[in-house]
Amino acid sequence: MSTTLEGYNFAYLDEATKRMIRRALLKAVAIPGHQIPFGAREMPLPYGWGTGGIQVTAAILGPTDTLKVIDQGADDTTNAISIRRFFTRVAGVATTEHTAEATVVQTRHRIPERLLREDQIIVYQVPQPEPLSRLEPRRTETKRLHALADYGLMHVRLYEDIARFGHIAKAYDYPVMVNGRYLMSPSPIPAFDNPKMHRMAALQLFGAGREKRIYAIPPYTDVRSLDFEDHPFRPIRAPHACALCASTDTYLDEVITDDAGGRLFVCSDTDHCAERQATAQEAAE
């Protein structure tokens, strides 16, 4: 059925590399939110295209898995299609566009709208794993700050937003505290998705290829978006209904339709939107 590539190990990586990544993953699960260095390999696609996520996926994937890959919520973008095709060729695994059918979901910048289950694993592609990187560029120093759980810098940064704009002006990659101990970058998912990470039934794994870091959130773990008592965290969403499925509770993309200011808002999660449209059509018939 599938034409698996000759001459490559199952899932592309060699076994020694997989063991190294697997050991890092297990320690990552044992220390929720803590970034663990790993020896990221050169992959057959450039940094920034999901090399960290791909290596994590390659280390966990088995022949009975069904893989879904999304890029900004969409199954049909170049990056998502390429990664799905990559794993079809090097591991011969089944792929799907339906969240409900997947056992492993690799994602760039979104969490699916449909609630993930206990038998699913979500793998995030992470460009910058260090939440403090913009505030403190020295790795040696951020390691120390994590060791001391000294996150005052980030609180000041959020406070400065409030002082300047009246609200926390961070719409994506909104920092979270994991299990009350580690400050963590949720990867550039919209702040809208942050609440989905809190006590999620599925295991969440994060891989950053260029930065060579792995981290994880076990299932049912507290994930709190940083905020202040008088400025509570608010997930941000465009105040519109989806132009295709009329949803008012999903994350929307703004699509420019012409040069005259025409635009429409559609669901970013293409699978969820298509499902809602199909259900609506069935109901109408």
Partner: peptide, 8 residues
Amino acid sequence: VLDGQATF
């Protein structure tokens, strides 16, 4: 390869 994956 596959037994290691299943065990992992």
